[in-house]
Nucleic acid binder design. Structure first.
Lengths: 170, 170
DNA sequence: GTCTATAATAGGATAGAC
DNA sequence: GTCTATCCTATTATAGAC
């Protein structure tokens, strides 16, 4: 996962994946018979599991919406290493390979937006508004990751996270 | 430029660059003796020229800040094909090559932010506030491009642009 | 399930004719 | 300044021993 998110699909070579996983190339092909596409699919599986457990679940748990958003922020802070790590979904959006993974990337973004919107509706925000604000939240998360990394300034990501409770308040 | 922005550095093959430019590989090497790095550097030159003329200049031109922001928006709408085209600076932020181009990417983002902040200060926004809001504007532009393309929904980018005049108002 | 060895191919880059 | 032909290396992928 760390190789794919930092290198993108085309940049992630088998040599790097082998080194990072500690397995020889042939062992990788034993576990992923379809090759690199299979490996990246497994990375997406892993991302989905991680998001489910650390981001979507807190957003759907009982409690005040503001608390749920803050729990999401805590998970994101760890997951994106305080803004120093790229977003896998964004990295996979580049290149020809993106066409193959596009459906899954799209679905993960949709599920994320829906989880946020769900929390907002629980806080009394009307359906349409909740959807728009949830999209705006993802826009800030993704955009701040791009800019924080480009400017070597993780504070940009951290400020974006801090802005979310207010954006998402009823 | 269109190849690099859509494919990233690693995904942009000489074959694609040759086809897109209409030149054979050897002709490309005649114009860019250092190879692919030289070609991408030229793409960054071209981007800088384009941004200077269509984005930075309007932001620094005389007139009310709101008007200048709207002129920037008009240029961005064209440049990003209403939200269907990726950002070259974001595409170059992925992979090992990003280290080589990072200084130029960083500087272009800084100049963009500074141009927006300049317009805000002219509108009476205090220096620190102007800087923060300009960064937030880029966050929205970049993030909305990622999300709009991932969800096949260019309206997300267009809404982000529409939100800028209010964000940046004094 | 992992390894070494090896294919097969694509990609970046060069030589030299025109 | 462009082309055809070629080289070299990295990369994806496979075969077969252990």
């Amino acid at each position: 996962m760390s190789v794919v998110r930092s290198q993108g699909y085309d940049g992630a070579s088998l040599a790097q994946l082998s080194k990072a996983s500690g397995l020889g190339k042939s062992s990788l092909y034993h576990h992923f018979p379809e090759g690199k596409d299979d490996m990246v699919a497994a990375v997406l599986d892993h991302l989905e599991t991680t998001l489910d457990a650390t981001v979507f679940a807190p957003l759907r748990a009982p409690g005040p919406p503001a608390t749920r958003i803050k729990r999401m922020n805590g998970s994101l802070l760890v997951f994106y290493r305080e803004g120093r790590e790229a977003c896998l979904l964004a990295s996979l959006g580049i290149g020809d390979s993106s066409r193959r993974f596009h459906p899954r990337v799209k679905q993960l973004f949709r599920r994320w937006i829906e989880a946020i919107a769900h929390a907002l509706r629980d806080g009394g925000v009307p359906r349409g508004q909740a959807q728009l604000r949830a999209e705006e939240a993802i826009v800030r998360i993704e955009g701040s990751l791009v800019l924080a990394r480009s400017l070597d300034d993780p504070a940009i990501f951290q400020r974006a996270l801090k802005s979310l409770p207010e954006l998402l308040a009823s």
